[in-house]
Each structure stands twice: as structure tokens, then as C-alpha cells.
Nucleic acid binder design. Structure first.
Lengths: 246, 246
DNA sequence: TCCGGCATGTGTACGGTGTGAACATCAGCA
DNA sequence: TGCTGATGTTCACACCGTACACATGCCGGA
């Protein structure tokens, strides 16, 4: 019989013997997710193997199937946690950056913080980022509801930042529709190029500068782009990116 | 002994017996790449298994190691082919769309075609797209040189489209630097969101409309965005960071 | 012409993975 | 107290990448 004592189920040393050294783990589901999160953080989504997760949890491989129908189910559960962490990081950044007294500047700062927070999270936690945003979605289960309690989905943060920009008058209401996809595409694309693509080997400072440029260009694009005149036949003058806030 | 006749090495029926039914395959390397390409097209990068590729080629698994050091090497070779196909598709679209007599309109059409061609390729061949652009790069081997003969790398197409926009006067030279990353980020992000992300289940027409919007917003962003005046705090002019690849 | 070397393909084996079926353990309830 | 269902274990299977020893046969030198 293998030794089952050398595992650290959680960070709660008070209940040291509650879930260990017993035939029944006690809270294997969350233990597996926690272990999976660590694996993904260390080695990316590919490193999340069901067997390794059970090994970390000090349990036999088949035990996982009492709590997850599939490896995919475990991956999905870990992805949810990763999504929450992304939302938390972005929210924190918004709270820091968007403290301007002027409403227009504050709104623009919020949108900027959302974009830069997204990219920062991708750079700081590439494994979690990939898992959170590059997974075919569990099965259409949750539609951008809170991935967990109290944590707002990153897309919700983006949407509310854009709505705020409309309320404040910076973004014309006529330009509002689809703006979230243009913004999300820009920051997501840069994040992917920087975490796995051709910008992978680039030094951090360069990527950070690029991130600012990309976010600013995206904002300028949605604020200034006239969706009714975007064909090759040319845009009307005066539709420049210069926002009303100057 | 397994039957080795049921394979189609290439599209050259003239030499039907040249590479088949013989102990030595004759051109196993390209046969494996061709098989791998089919596997990726059908099931995405994950479906490219070395064993399955050798099975399709009618050869034992170990035979692959005479031509590729690794599974990664085979993947990389297939990725090169995928990259070429992407370049071809984008080039074809550019030739179709960018036929305006007016130089400024033609230049803008070229950039639009590059972006829409990129997204179209991703939607038409999601497996090849993922393999081509979401692979950690072979090992810094080829720096955007022609992935094959005669085919220009997608990034090269983008860069020349932007350069053309500068020559024609639509894009101020001061806004040129880093523009390729803003554009690439936007189209790559949308492609990723649409092939694996939350837009995966969206119907094709909706995504196509979104693609046009995103491309136009990206163009508006780089053409109109003043990289020195978009930040909330207001950065000094002339602080445009030079592109990482030069 | 024969022959030998070397590139190429085969067979077998090992450790890794996900997953299912049968069995073991234990908590909680009648 | 003993049963029952939830949970964990053991064993087994098929698949994967990969390494090693061996088989085959093309091609150039004698």
C-alpha cells in the first residue's frame, strides 16, 4: 500500500489530519483542481494530466473519476478557477488605475486598465491564461455568469468599461455595438502572440510597450471607427481617433 | 506482414508504383508531412500523432525517426506547410480585392485583404491555423523567411501592406512603427476567439460581419491613433517604441 | 559482375497517458 | 447493529512517444 501522507491538500494547516491519511480523502474534487492549477501554472495546459493530479493529491488515478467524468471535466474545472484569477487581477488593476476625477478620463482609464490587465495576466500567468481563454468552453454551460462568486468575468469587465465610455460621451452610442469584440480581439491577440507566438522570446519591457500601443490603438479604433463607412471606399474625414477628451 | 498498398503518397498518379509496395518507401518524409497535414486538418493539432501519420503512410512507427528526430520535428514540418497555405490564401485574396485604380484606395484594400484573408483562413482551416500560428516556433530557426519557395510569409504580406499605406500617404510615417503588431493582434485575436474561444459556436455569417468590423477598427486604430497622445496620463510625443523585429 | 556499406524500414519493448470494471473501505442511517 | 451508497484501490486495456537491435535493399567500388 502506497504512502499517502506526503501531500498538502490545502493551505489550511489547522485541519492537518482532516483529509489526509484516511481511506477517503474528504475533499478530493477541490484537491484535484488545486493540484491541476499548480500543474498548469508550472507547465501550461499540456502539463495537466489526470494521473499527475491524482499523484499530487496522493490518490489513485481512478479515484478522479468519482468526481470528474473525464479529463476534460477536470480541465474545465481548473479553467474556471483560472478565469476567476484573471478576473481578479483585472479588477485589481482597474481599481488602481481608474481613479481619475474627470469622468471621461476615468472611463478611458478603466478601459485601458481592462486591456492592460488582460495582457498583464497573460504575461504573468501564461499557463493559466491559455487554459482560461483558449479552451473550447466546457459545453456552453455558463454564459459569462460569474465564474465563481463575487468575481466578475473578464468579458463583463470589458463590457461595463465600454458602457461607461458611452455614458460619459467619449464613445458614440452608434459605435458601441461589437466594440467589445474589437477590443477583446486586440488584447487577446497580443497576449497569444506574446505567450506562444512570435513574440514569445521578446523581452518583457518590449512587450509591455507593445501592449500599451496595441491597447491605445484598439481604443482609438473603436472610438473613431465609423461602422457605417468602413468599406474600402474610404472613411469620411473628421473620423479620426482623437477623442472628445483630447 | 501488414499490407502497405493502401496509401496515396502524393497526388502524382503517374509514378503509382514508385514509392509503394516496396520495403523502402521512397519519399517517406513528405508522405508523413502530407499525412500529418490531413490529420491536422481533420482534427486539429492534437490529432497529429506520430503513430497515426506512419499508419496512414503505411509504415511502422519507428520509421518516422529516420526523417524526424522527434514528434515535435514532424509537427514543425507540418506547421511550415500550414503557414505556406495561409500565405497562399491571403495572397490570393489580396490579388482579388486590391484592384482599385486609386493608389490610396488600393493600399487600404490590400491591408483589408490581408486581415480578412487571415481570418478567413482561420475559419476555413481552423486546424491548420492553430498549428501554423500557435506553435512555439520550431526553435528560432527561420525568421519569417519564405516558409517555402515562392510563398510569402503572412507577416511579410502584412508588413508590405502597411508600407504601401505609408508610401501612398494614408498612414503617417510617424504612426508606422508597431502598426503590424496592432493589426496582427486584432486579426489573430478574433481568429482565435472564433476558432477555439467563445465565438466558436457562433454562426459563420455573424463572425464574418465581426471580422469586417474588427479589421476596419484595427485599420482606423493604426491610421488615426496618435501613439503619443492616447494614454490617460498623456505621454510625450515621439516616444514610439521601435518594433522588436526591426 | 559481385560485394559490401549505409540509408532506410521492421519488431519489440518500456514507460507514460486516459479510462473502465471489479473489489475494498468507511460514514451515516434504519 | 448491520446495511447501503459514496468514495477510493487494484488491475487491465488501448493508445501514445521513443529507443534498440535487426532486416532490407540501393549504390558505388573492386
Amino acid at each position: 500500500m502506497p504512502e499517502r501522507g506526503d501531500k498538502m491538500t490545502d493551505g489550511t494547516p489547522g485541519t492537518a489530519s482532516s483529509a489526509q491519511d484516511r481511506y477517503h480523502h474528504g475533499d478530493l474534487a477541490t484537491a484535484l483542481v488545486t493540484a491541476g492549477l499548480a500543474l498548469v501554472r508550472a507547465g501550461g495546459p499540456e502539463a495537466l494530466s489526470l494521473r499527475e493530479a491524482t499523484r499530487v493529491a496522493g490518490v489513485s488515478p481512478s479515484a478522479a473519476y468519482r468526481h470528474f467524468t473525464d479529463r476534460a471535466a477536470l480541465v474545465s474545472a481548473v479553467a474556471d478557477r483560472a478565469l476567476s484569477q484573471a478576473g481578479l487581477a483585472m479588477q485589481a488593476r482597474m481599481d488602481d488605475d481608474g481613479a481619475d476625477a474627470d469622468p471621461a478620463r476615468r472611463a478611458r482609464g478603466h478601459l485601458r486598465a481592462v486591456g492592460l490587465g488582460y495582457i498583464d495576466f497573460a504575461l504573468a500567468e501564461p499557463g493559466l491564461f491559455q487554459l482560461a481563454f483558449q479552451t473550447p468552453a466546457p459545453s456552453g454551460a455558463h454564459d459569462y455568469a460569474a465564474p465563481s462568486d463575487q468575481v466578475r468575468h473578464p468579458l463583463v469587465l470589458l463590457i461595463s468599461a465600454l458602457d461607461e465610455l458611452v455614458e460619459v460621451g467619449v464613445l458614440p452610442a452608434a459605435h458601441r455595438s461589437n466594440a467589445e469584440w474589437a477590443c477583446w480581439s486586440a488584447v487577446h491577440g497580443l497576449s497569444d502572440l506574446a505567450t506562444r507566438g512570435p513574440l514569445h522570446a521578446q523581452d518583457r519591457a518590449t512587450v509591455a510597450k507593445l501592449a500599451e500601443y496595441v491597447v491605445d490603438a484598439a481604443i482609438a479604433g473603436v472610438v473613431g471607427a465609423d461602422p457605417a463607412a468602413t468599406s474600402t471606399t474610404g472613411r469620411r474625414p473628421g473620423a479620426g481617433a482623437k477623442g472628445p477628451t483630447g
